[in-house]
Design a protein around this nucleic acid. Structure first.
Ligand code: ZN
Ligand code: ZN
Length: 731
DNA sequence: AGCACGCCGACT
DNA sequence: GTCGGCGTGCTC
């Protein structure tokens, strides 16, 4: 008889053996099967080739049904997922199911289901768009639909609204039909635009190196701004597509998908698909199938796109490789960057990790010769000066957290008809509401975390659990009506700036003022206009280019970084800082970047400002090496949480005792904890963690595999939530 | 996960 | 004397 290993979506590390139906002989590796487990029937995925056994000492159950006609994963991807399950200590079945669109997890077929599509009616086809002169949006929509049909899920991409289309439908100009998507090979019709003299000498050299590597290589492409980086991407992608192979582009956030989409569409006559968490199940399945069958030429997606199957993958690009968004923070905590590198290795193709500020992990890999670094050193051509300096706040006259000197600088830049950007990494009006009489502070009781006061809705918001309470009129402890705010948030900053500069327009951009994409776009359009203006924002503004004429940027409160308990805070800050100086400041003019701090002598800050990111990174790496922190050691954290503080801690205490006395324990293994997590209490739940550290990644992985089975059996772990975090990005 | 089995207290 | 709570073990 024939036996196969089947992975089931249950919290069990191993696979299960099942017997093939007697009449079935062909291999079914990678297909979904329906199998009996105990009293129920569940869906699983076949992990192995058929194993022929003559007689068995054990009775195996028989596979009830085979759902697919072919494997859902290439051999490469399947073996990578199996490896990943072991590396991240996460159940194999759950890992494999995670890599499938949810419709396939539910047992739906691997067929393209009909999608809704907008088309012109025959009446609409012959209607002149001039008749819609009075409604420009409808006019634009009809014009577009006369040229081509549009799937309903594409309407945002073309900046059409549902409402506009509905109105056109009412006029019987267009209709919404279910159509079977036509799949065709894109390659015969493929062409792309070549721009002459697009690249300078350095970029040409880089592109030549990237194009010459046909085998697995991990490149770290370090650029000084996004323009030169994108030029290189376009040239390398074109080179891969013209061989008929597919390209996967990974980005850290959804917004960036559309930026690249717009650029790629103008360049390549090839189908581009996108994948991110906001797609619905049908769209997700459609994209997954298109990539797998080779109908998409380029797939642009966020983290989970690294898991999809490709017919013929030729290149992976992972943009902004230092971004933490690539690390999954729930369940299977994989790192998309590391997974992507492993994937490129398995497929034997090259991968480009793009960044302006390489992560310390990648820098170490470059040092060790595992990754190859390529630099794009070209700055925006200009002989104008950028002066960056630390502004010592000690003994400075302050106006609500802004120094007199800074106000003077702002005024100068505004007088020159330029724009000023003030960064403050704190939303709301004020982070603390305190009683002037008895020093009581308003605190969220579910999180033991101070409420942030928001004036626009007169509510106190907990930034940990998003709980809200109306702003109290009197102190809840002594009852006196003398509550005052302490500290500065962006909302208050806007008010203060309006008072200081009553005649200058001020725009604030943070997640309180931006509800959706349209709102952001509207604001960006306003900002784009000429003239003096002050912009206020949190880090969401720092992700890329905003507008011309920003000649002064100031970070108002950077000292929180210096005190942060996370040793990675300064690294993250440096990356933000470089992003600002590379992309936001208008380098065609004389400009300034000012950091307000009480610690202007801080050596790391000085290195960053005087010598730049590379010098700082070298210092940080040396420091990490000295104290054996990642990337010079390896971490696994067991995280636990529960409504009961003791239950969460007890489980980890049990784990620690077991690990401590384990016979395979090596003297270099460090155990720290259980200690409360950084986010100790949130929404009523207490978070604890136990850290394992070891210089050898391989040892730690192996050792933990030995420890885990016992830990999984602890009854203390059954009634709480717990989870394993390999290579954590925050401790 | 989800289901069965078994042991113990409370309730006809 | 049995009903049902939950802690424990197991699923190919
Ligand atoms: Zn809270
Ligand atoms: Zn009081």
């Amino acid at each position: 008889m024939n036996i196969v290993k089947v992975a089931l979506p249950i919290p069990v590390m191993h696979a299960f053996n099942y017997q093939l139906p007697s009449n079935f002989l062909s291999p079914i590796k990678g297909r979904r099967v329906l199998v009996p487990l105990g009293k129920r029937m569940i869906l699983g995925i076949v992990l192995s080739d058929n194993i022929h056994v003559k007689c068995s000492y054990r009775q195996y159950k028989i596979i009830k049904e085979i759902l697919d006609y072919e494997s859902l994963f290439s051999d490469n991807l399947l073996s990578l997922l199996i490896w990943s399950s072991k590396y991240y200590h996460y159940p194999i079945g759950e890992v494999l199911f995670h890599a499938l669109p949810s419709l396939l997890r539910q047992g739906k077929g691997t067929i393209f289901s009909p999608l809704q599509q907008w088309q012109v009616t025959s009446y609409g086809k012959n209607t002149s768009i001039n008749q819609l002169r009075r409604s420009p949006k409808q006019q634009k929509a009809l014009k577009l639909l006369q040229e081509r049909n549009l799937y309903h899920h594409q309407i945002n991409e073309f900046e059409l609204s549902k409402n506009t289309l509905k109105l056109l439908k009412k006029k019987n100009l267009i209709q919404l039909l279910y159509v079977q998507p036509q799949m065709e090979n894109w390659y015969p019709n493929f062409y792309f635009f070549i721009k002459k003299k697009e690249l300078n000498l350095e970029q040409k050299t880089v592109v030549r190196i990237l194009n010459s590597k046909l085998k697995f290589t991990t490149f770290v492409l370090v650029s000084k701004n996004s323009f030169s980086k994108i030029k290189v991407y376009l040239n390398v992608i074109g080179n891969v597509l013209k061989t008929g192979k597919q390209v996967l582009l990974l980005v850290p956030e959804i917004k960036l998908i559309y930026n690249f989409m717009d650029i790629f569409k103008k360049r390549f006559n090839a189908p581009i698909d996108i994948l991110h968490s906001k797609l619905n199940n049908n769209e997700r399945l459609a994209v997954w199938l298109r990539a797998k069958k080779g109908y998409s030429a380029i797939v642009i997606g966020t983290r989970s796109a690294v898991l999809i199957s490709f017919m013929n993958l030729g290149l992976i690009i992972l943009d902004e490789e230092n971004d933490n968004a690539y690390k999954e923070q729930y369940g299977w905590r994989y790192h998309a960057r590391d997974f992507a590198v492993m994937r490129a290795k398995k497929e034997d193709i090259s991968i480009i990790l793009g960044t302006e500020t390489p992560s310390l992990e990648s820098l170490k890999n470059i040092d060790e010769g595992k990754y190859q670094r390529l630099d794009l050193t070209e700055q925006t051509k200009s002989n104008k000066k950028l002066s960056q300096y630390l502004l010592d706040l000690k003994c400075q006259p302050l106006k609500h957290g802004i120094s007199r000197i800074l106000i003077q600088r702002i005024e100068d830049h505004l007088l020159a008809n330029n724009k000023v950007l003030l960064f403050l990494n704190r939303r709301g009006y004020s982070p603390i509401l305190i009683c002037h009489n008895c020093s009581w502070i308003a605190e969220c009781l579910s999180c033991n975390y101070y409420y942030t006061l928001h004036y626009y809705d007169r509510q106190m918001h907990c930034h940990r659990c998003n709980n809200q309470l109306p702003m109290p009129i009197q102190c809840l402890k002594c009852g006196l009506k003398c509550l005052i705010t302490l500290g500065l948030g962006t909302e208050q900053l806007e008010k203060i700036i309006n008072n200081i500069f009553p005649d200058v327009p001020v725009t604030r951009i943070d997640s309180d003022t931006i509800y959706d994409k349209k709102e952001l776009k509207k604001k960006l359009e306003i900002i784009y206009k000429n003239g003096a203006r002050i912009l206020i924002g949190t880090q969401i503004l720092a992700k890329g280019y905003i507008c011309p004429d920003i000649t002064l940027v100031s970070l108002l409160n950077i000292d929180s970084v210096l005190f942060a308990s996370d040793y990675r805070a300064i690294e993250k800050f440096a990356q933000l800082y470089i992003k600002i100086s590379n992309n936001i400041i208008d380098r065609t003019k004389n400009s300034e970047l000012i950091l307000q701090t009480y610690y202007p002598e801080n050596p790391l800050l000085l290195t960053l400002i005087k010598k730049g990111y590379n010098a700082l990174a070298i210092e940080m790496l040396a420091e990490r090496r000295d104290v054996s922190l990642p990337p010079y050691s390896n971490h696994i954290i067991i995280r636990s949480e529960d409504y009961n503080d003791k239950s969460a801690a007890n489980f980890l205490e049990k784990c620690r005792q077991y690990i401590e006395q384990h016979s395979m324990r090596d003297s270099k293994l460090c155990l720290i904890g259980p200690i409360p997590a950084i986010k100790f209490k949130c929404a009523g739940r207490f978070h604890w963690q136990l850290l394992l550290q070891h210089p050898s990644r391989y040892y730690l992985q192996q050792f933990f595999s030995c420890v885990l089975p016992k830990i999984m059996k602890y009854p203390e772990g059954r009634k709480i939530k717990w989870n394993i975090d390999v290579d954590p990005i925050e401790n």
